[in-house]
Write a protein that binds this DNA or RNA. Structure first.
Lengths: 109, 109
DNA sequence: CGGGATCCGTCTTGATACTG
DNA sequence: CAGTATCAAGACGGATCCCG
């Protein structure tokens, strides 16, 4: 995805400006989810193809890293990098805003 | 667009989670742009159809309002409502994050 | 003529079925 | 369980059209 301009908002949106990326980061940062199927269980029902794509994108951007676990079968766990954790304040600000400006929102679960 | 869950992040993303909505709000809140053609001039080059769509969406959400100006011809100016202005902290947080985590970003212009 | 809506081809995103 | 392949649906960009 090519950068549209040098504006920080524009650059950030090139990376996180879609309907799913911040949902995945929410699950990583706030709910400590780590495995593929855990992300699939969230109430927004992300599809497998989108989840695969967003995990790759976040990995390439250096916001998350994946490490294999389990001895024989290939299983991955995903976790936020230090850089990924710096997005928490952005998420928090969005939560604050939504709570005050969108009716009937709760943190799910 | 139907709400995917009651999570505030998800709800917010249903409204502002795309590549253009926050660009328009940036122009409204930080650069005080008000007219259709002013938004078109931004370096990200939004197309007229997308701009029309986003302005309608933001108006329906109560984040901006349009008022006619000019005596005879029908011209509109767009301005953020009080509710729209409450998104400024979210934008600021994104700017902070991008400045520290994405290389070579400046506020354009 | 200038503001903005509509149409259409293309590219991107998403849902589902399926595989290692 | 963790993805990939396939195909459908939607978003985008640009041109054009329409109205005041």
């Amino acid at each position: 995805m090519n950068r549209r301009s040098d504006c920080p908002i524009s650059c950030a949106l090139d990376l996180i400006g879609d309907r799913w990326t911040l949902i995945v980061l929410r699950d990583l940062l706030f709910f400590n989810k780590t495995r593929f199927d855990e992300f699939l269980e969230s109430p927004e029902h992300i599809s497998t193809s989108v989840l695969t794509d967003r995990l790759h994108k976040l990995e390439r951007a250096g916001l998350i890293e994946k490490t294999p676990y389990s001895s024989h079968r290939l299983r991955m766990t995903y976790s936020p990098t230090e850089k990924g954790k710096t997005l928490a304040p952005v998420l928090n600000e969005i939560v604050c805003w939504a709570r005050q400006n969108i009716e009937d929102t709760v943190m799910y679960g």
